[in-house]
Design a protein around this nucleic acid. Structure first.
Lengths: 208, 208
DNA sequence: TAGATTGTTAATCGATTAACAATC
DNA sequence: TAGATTGTTAATCGATTAACAATC
């Protein structure tokens, strides 16, 4: 079952299912039908069943889905049962915010270093994490088994940083720079274009 | 022409067009065809023409689109020709990062106050912006003609904050809390679910 | 005018929803 | 067993792409 085609739309719903199932699990809900879940999440029940069935048959006819089991399955599918060694590139506002977010630790994201070009921040610590010279990214990735990088630089230097990361066989890039990076398919790239999101909001305010 | 139906997918592409046109404008490019733009942006040329035509005929047959003019038109459509008075709720990592982001000023987002419940941060300033007691959100919105709020609280208090904002006729909410807020259609809501985005990345790393 | 490129209609593709047989 | 609900196929809907007449 694992090899069905999974569309972009399905992938983007997975974290939302995971979040809702965590919530239900915390509330002590033991099982839920696709119908009940569809009402909770404002989605179509058929769609929910179809989405889950991309990854296998997790339900039981006549009963529904076991919340805890489904949550764990989705966690595995999302790769949340694994550990990730992470570096942050850019010690500006966003870089510092991500470095300070304590939720990452609980979820197996180990931030091992922050890199910047600014001589004044190099050598300091942010939330207990060392700030290193951006010139040393390559060697640090190799020595510390880094699998992910968060790009928090200005747009102008993002592509250069991306190239260095790709060269060093990084597995995934979480990009906060407002740039459309050129990156081979072998490296997973996920963009958070904050200003795009803000502009969608201003559009809606003016066209609601 | 202004009243064609504009799908979600089209709306989400608008900021990307705007960003690319800004770039072209800065490079001094005066005009561009949908074909050339499609190659730059990795979209289909028909789609681009169709997208723009949701809002009117901005091109000239045989010539293409005037970059500067199209950029300005898209800016108007996105509401970027207007001013927005903004408050930030939550002086944690994300709230502080947004308060410190200087790009907002240039783009007509005036951050007039930050609100928190923590007695230690109330009374301080972040990037020159006062931190106020969250109890005073309602009166502040009324007195300062606030049109937008950025929710940067924990998930547990986000809905309560949202309700207060809605009560005070806020126009738009930019929500960073990992929660699916309940909000009437009259208020525009745009979510930035950072952990959802990160989990899509871990999914991709493990299923590439 | 001829050539280029838009604006728009028609065709295709893919995602969502409905329906229902399978089965717990 | 009867009732409930899944897993999956078929129908629908909407978005993307192709084609081309209109027109600069």
């Amino acid at each position: 079952m694992q090899n069905k085609y999974v569309s972009e739309a399905v992938i983007r719903r997975l974290p939302k299912y995971y979040r809702k199932l965590q919530e239900l699990s915390q509330k002590g809900v033991e099982s839920i039908s696709s119908q009940a879940l569809s009402e909770e999440m404002d989605l179509n029940a058929s769609q929910i069943r179809r989405d889950f069935n991309c990854f296998g048959g997790f339900g039981q006819q006549g009963y529904g889905y076991q919340v805890e089991r489904l949550k764990n399955k989705l966690g595995e599918i999302l790769g949340l049962d694994k550990q990730y060694n992470v570096i942050i590139i850019g010690a500006g506002n966003i870089g510092r915010a991500l470095a300070g977010y304590s939720g990452f630790k609980a979820q197996r994201f180990n931030i091992l270093g922050i890199f910047d070009t600014d001589k004044d921040s190099i050598g300091t610590k942010i939330n207990g994490i060392d700030v290193y010279d951006a010139d040393n990214i390559s060697s640090f990735i190799k020595q510390n088994n880094i699998s992910m990088a968060f790009i928090c630089t200005p747009a102008s230097s993002a592509q250069k940083v991306c190239d260095i990361l790709v060269e060093n066989n990084i597995k995934g890039i979480w990009n906060f720079a407002p740039a459309d990076l050129n990156c081979p398919d072998s490296v997973s790239l996920e963009n958070v274009h904050l200003s795009d999101s803000l502009f969608v909001l201003t559009y809606r305010i003016n066209n609601n």
